[in-house]
Design a protein around this nucleic acid. Structure first.
Lengths: 201, 201, 201, 201
DNA sequence: AATGAATGAGGGTTCATTCAT
DNA sequence: GATGAATGAACCCTCATTCAT
């Protein structure tokens, strides 16, 4: 029994929980697993978290606020809409590449864990949608994006494509041991989204 | 309750299960809920299914085979690659519009239900990826699609965009009571994917 | 595993619970004790009762309704107020002599088990108080009881004396193996209450 | 928190415990509640008390010794048995009126807290019974009390009546905000016990 | 002496599955 | 085949107590 800085201890538990939730999902991760993985007594967990839900929510809240922070910082000054867009996309890739467990947690586990966490997921969604849609709208206004694109549709298309790529390249491929060139990915994404896949005639 | 045609009875159970799994997720749906919803005794369920997993898997297998059947039938003869692509996309929309519960089941519930069903999910994925990738490859070969697109990347991009749109328009919007013009959706999707979002300069 | 008439099974559980609650109190009786005593699986208990509280409450409700039934039946026709009073007192003694566990449950366990069951205890109290007080009031009106007795005070005095005697003679003495003459007890109680303890001068 | 006179600290804890035990009962009062209420660290409690039981027992012992002290002091010299009896009863009322929490603790909480404290409760009982019975016996001997009263029965009757009145007037009525005239209560009690409730014919 | 983080045995409850009817 | 009562492993959470600081 070693007394420890409460923040460190809390982090210790969260780290274990993140790993296990990400690996096995919410319902297939037991409190017993977490306390074992964290090297902490079972009861200790309940000094830092109200219950299992609370751990999971804390993880998601942290993910959300980290992401939000990222979006606020490191802004780019450019007049080219595509440049800005490219920057944002790269940021997201970097963010999730650094922490694939987060990626898995958000894009798979939380999504499928039932209505308990719908509210939180919704917050992510809204933020993402808002971000893309607002940018798109502006780009339409300045004539950079075609006037005939349906904003809602485009937003979902871009968002879905991004999510899937994040998931694929950070979770699936990385697990398989592939090394990936970030810039290549981002370029690939932006390119298709911008110009489509068709060859020029 | 009367004795009944085994197939009908099985269907009865599956229908109830689909509704509940889709609504509440795998772990938050109890056998008790299913038998109540199906109007069947608790024990009866175990005469048609080995266990809870089996029900869920059966549902997914059915979804898979229905989808496969769809892909085989109603083929289109056209020399235009985009025409074929458009046809396929519309098929998918139609398929999931007809049965939003399936859409939810596949795109949310199964995805987030842990490793138990990874194998099945993987089958879907492979099929979808193969479908898109094979088509893309051919399109590249015949010069319809740019040679510089990364096939893997494009596949994930197209697939992710499609999944998200399916989920958004069949589950989210439909619940909100919106009526949706299918052709508009498909056109929107194909258009962006083909030509990108940028305005011509 | 023997399937059994649900009412019998429920009674089986209640009987075990009554014994244990009465013996050891609410908090010191575990569900494990009850299912063992009842010769029933742990989970079975939850098919008949929502939770531990529910078992206890059911027991008290049953006690209450049995008692109520008793009070309604077997009425006596007599013009003598003391005769009626005597009859009621004897009824109560008989009731609790027949089931000392009930007596213990009500007069000790429920009373001391915290606010959870206050509402139910209160019901008993109100009924008892009402009963005594209403009778007293009438007896005052017809001039059988002194006009200068404070009704509230007398009610509590009579009730408290009765409770204590019930508890003493049904729980304590009976456990000690004494055999008791009911009529003697009732006479003793009524006599003191009616004429006091003082010798005539 | 500063280091403090051990007796003061102990008192601090006991005061908090008394309030909480009296309010919520033994099992529904947690050590956490007590240390919070006492404004003392959790561990500190265990420097003054062996365990939770010990706190409760200390409280009861204190109650017992306070009561004993009361019985020894302030004696009355009178040849009239009823005068002495009246004095004793008034003493008890005063004692519990001054400290309703004690009254609740003894008459409800301790009574219902299971066998752990039976021994202590028994001591109270014995003392009370002895007191009443001894006095009664003497009163019988000097011809003040009827020879035909059953001593055991009368003792329980008088004790039970007194307990209930104490509880009713110190806990229930006081909480309801009634102000009560002590002498009236005592007179009422003694009067009924002495002369009964019946009107003289 | 005082603190409060850490502990873990223990208890209530859930729920998939079995099986006597 | 159909039923639903019975089962008990499994899991979350509480809380009295300990002990390093």
């Amino acid at each position: 029994m070693r007394i420890m800085d409460p923040n460190v201890r809390k982090e210790q538990i969260l780290t274990a929980a993140k790993k296990l939730f990400s690996q096995n999902g919410y319902y297939q991760t037991q409190i017993a697993d977490i306390h074992r993985e964290a090297g902490v007594a079972r009861g200790t967990i309940y000094q830092y978290f109200k219950n299992k839900d609370d751990i999971f929510e804390t993880l998601l809240e942290k993910l959300y606020s980290d992401w939000e922070k990222l979006l606020l910082t490191g802004d780019i000054k450019s007049n080219d809409y595509m440049e800005v867009f490219r920057f944002r996309v790269k940021q997201s890739f970097e963010f999730f590449f650094r922490d694939p467990e987060y990626c898995n947690l958000l894009l798979r586990v939380a999504l499928g864990s039932g209505q308990n966490f719908d509210r939180i997921i919704e917050r992510f969604n809204e933020k993402l949608v808002h971000l893309i849609k607002a940018n798109l709208r502006e780009a339409v206004n300045i004539g950079r994006v075609r006037k005939d694109v349906n904003l809602d549709l485009a937003t979902n298309l871009l968002g879905g494509a991004l999510s899937r790529m994040l998931y694929y390249y950070t979770v699936i491929q990385k697990n398989a041991g592939f090394s990936i060139d970030l810039d290549e990915l981002v370029d690939g994404y932006v390119n298709i989204v911008a110009y489509g896949i068709l060859a020029k005639q």
